[in-house]
Simulated scan of single mutants.
Amino acid sequence: MTTIEVTSTSEEGYVTRSRVGDFELTIDATDEEGPNPNATLLADYASCFVPAFRVGGQKEGFDDLGRIDVDVEGDVDDDDDLEAIRFHLLVEEDLDDDEFDAIVERAEDICHVHSALREGLHAEITGETGGF
């Protein structure tokens, strides 16, 4: 089992600086010195899903999917809690709907952030292929 260690510090206000290995990440609930926690979660989710999509593509026989862009939208309620997440993928490789859906299904099983979120908050995923 691997342990992930993060050290987060908030010296004042709503800014938190986290040290993750050799990297520093600044998150600000007010969006002034960095993205807010919900935006960071959406970026993290997309950043996990893309490599999972690539691995899923390899398992479906596509060794190189080319460029992949993900547009992410998240809906928040009046308490700033995420209610819904949507991914729209633009994939360079030209896939038919069944191929795309099969890769998405595999990616959902592979993506660790997808697994960590409550089921009601998994991303709704649409896409286009043969792009760029």
Rank of each mutant, 00 (worst) to 15 (best):
D75T: 15
L95V: 03
E24V: 02
L42W: 01
E12Q: 04
F23Q: 13
D64A: 10
C111A: 13
A29F: 07
D77V: 12
C48H: 02
V91E: 05
E60V: 09
M1P: 12
D78Y: 00
D31T: 03
D77P: 13
G66D: 07
A46Y: 03
G130N: 08
D98E: 15
L117A: 14
R86I: 04
T126Q: 00
I85C: 07
G61F: 13
E128Y: 03
R54W: 09
H88M: 04
D77E: 11
D64E: 13
E5S: 14
F23A: 11
F53E: 04
S10H: 03
E92V: 09
A102R: 11
P51T: 05
F100D: 09
N38T: 09
E99Q: 15
R106S: 03
T3K: 14
M1F: 11
V6E: 11
R67A: 11
G57W: 11
D28C: 03
D71V: 15
I110G: 00
G21L: 10
E33G: 08
E105M: 06
D69S: 11
G21N: 13
D71W: 14
Y14R: 14
G34P: 09
I27L: 06
I68M: 06
F49I: 02
F87M: 01
V15F: 13
C48D: 05
Y45N: 03
T9G: 02
S8N: 08
D75L: 15
